[in-house]
Simulated assay, not measured.
Amino acid sequence: MNNSFLTQQLDLGTKIASQRKALGVRAQSAARSAGISRVTLHRIEKGETSVSLGAYLQVCHALGLHLGILAADEGQPTNQLTPEGTRIRIGDYSQLTALAWQLDVNTLITDEQARGIYERNKRFLDMQQIDSHERALMQRLIAEKGMENLLV
């Protein structure tokens, strides 16, 4: 393998670790959510080449990360943050709290991260428990971020 590939894999591992830590997710919880062992997650975060691409993708999906080629297909830059100050407190929304059970209720996330949580876990949404405040958030995310697959 050439050095460029190894550097990119190490960078990917570093970005995965940074995202997990920024979200305040413990390694054990992230691994369980991705369907891999904690040891495999540790190896991924170190950028080891012996870990399968599928395991890397599972962790990226669990943490709401997208590879650049996927983001380019969607017309969105990878890991685009909303303007400073636009943050959502997980505990302010009952269904978001239930879907992001591994995160502290005081965790602040971006619109993009909230959209990812709703979309990845839409099968677990309890539509009867969505209050008007959370419904307004979801409708705003649909309008601004393209959550067309969520029917609210």
Rank of each mutant, 00 (worst) to 15 (best):
Q28D: 11
S29K: 13
A30C: 12
A31D: 06
R32T: 12
S33F: 06
S33P: 04
A34W: 09
A34Q: 02
A34F: 12
G35T: 09
G35S: 05
I36D: 03
S37R: 14
R38H: 12
R38D: 13
R38M: 14
R38N: 07
V39D: 14
T40N: 06
T40K: 08
K46G: 01
E48H: 14
T49Y: 13
V51Q: 04
S52D: 12
L53P: 09
A55F: 10
Y56V: 15
L57H: 08
V59Q: 14
V59I: 12
V59W: 12
V59A: 01
C60P: 07
H61I: 11
A62T: 11
A62D: 10
A62C: 14
A62M: 14
L65D: 13
H66L: 14
L67A: 09
G68R: 14
I69L: 05
L70T: 06
L70S: 03
A71S: 15
A71F: 11
D73V: 12
D73E: 10
D73A: 14
Q76A: 10
Q76C: 06
P77N: 09
N79S: 15
N79P: 03
Q80K: 14
Q80N: 08
Q80R: 14
L81G: 04
L81N: 08
L81R: 11
L81C: 05
T82M: 11
P83A: 12
P83K: 05
E84Q: 03
G85R: 06
R87G: 07
I88E: 00
I90P: 00
G91Y: 07
D92K: 00
D92A: 00
Y93I: 07
Y93T: 05
Y93G: 05
L96I: 08
L96D: 08
L96P: 01
T97M: 09
T97S: 00
A100Y: 04
W101T: 10
Q102A: 10
L103A: 05
V105A: 02
V105G: 00
V105C: 07
N106P: 01
N106K: 00
N106W: 10
T107C: 04
T107F: 05
I109T: 00
I109N: 01
T110A: 02
D111C: 09
Q113C: 08
A114W: 06
A114K: 02
A114H: 04
R115I: 02
G116H: 11
Y118I: 03
E119A: 10
E119C: 08
R120F: 06
R120P: 05
R123L: 05
F124T: 04
L125T: 08
L125V: 11
D126R: 12
D126N: 12
I130Q: 02
I130E: 02
S132K: 05
E134C: 03
E134R: 10
E134L: 04
E134S: 06
R135E: 12
A136S: 01
L137F: 04
L141W: 05
L141G: 00
L141V: 10
L141S: 04
A143H: 13
A143S: 15
A143M: 09
G146V: 09
M147H: 10
M147E: 09
E148F: 13
L151Q: 13
L151V: 11
